[in-house]
Amino acid sequence: MGGAQEESGPGPAGTPPGGADFEIRVRGRIGEAFRSAFGEMTIVLRPAETVLVGAGLDQAALYGILDRIQALGLELLEVRRLPGTGG
């Protein structure tokens, strides 16, 4: 029956409705062809990894980026919300 709504979303903290800034790390240095798949992201190449930084990402955008990483066969190392962003 209809009671108070409970926060039981996909994650304990959830992604704020307005979005948040995220840093996503993948193994290796991705080439120019792969970089074009992440045009909305800031890309930082490090010696052993590539860091993708996205500003104001909502949950749908974050999952879309993770889907692209998987589809391209990239190895995901870490996803983290940057401090001081979002609600």
Rank of each mutant, 00 (worst) to 15 (best):
I24N: 10
A37S: 15
G31T: 07
M41F: 15
G28I: 03
L77H: 06
P16L: 06
E6Q: 09
V79S: 00
R46C: 12
Q59W: 04
E49I: 01
V53C: 08
M41I: 09
T85E: 01
P10N: 04
Q59F: 05
E6H: 07
A13Q: 15
R46I: 01
G73Q: 01
I43L: 11
G18K: 07
E75K: 12
P83W: 00
G28P: 15
T15M: 04
F38R: 03
A61G: 12
G19M: 00
G19K: 01
Q5R: 08
A55L: 09
I65L: 07
E75F: 04
R29W: 03
V51I: 02
M41V: 14
L76E: 00
G31Y: 11
D58F: 06
P12A: 10
R35Q: 15
Q5N: 09
G86Q: 02
A71P: 09
L77R: 10
L72K: 14
P12H: 10
G56D: 10
L72D: 03
L82H: 02
V53T: 13
G14C: 14
L74R: 13
G86P: 10
G64P: 02
E6N: 10
T85S: 11
T15N: 07
R80T: 02
A71M: 08
S36K: 15
R81Q: 14
I30K: 03
E7L: 08
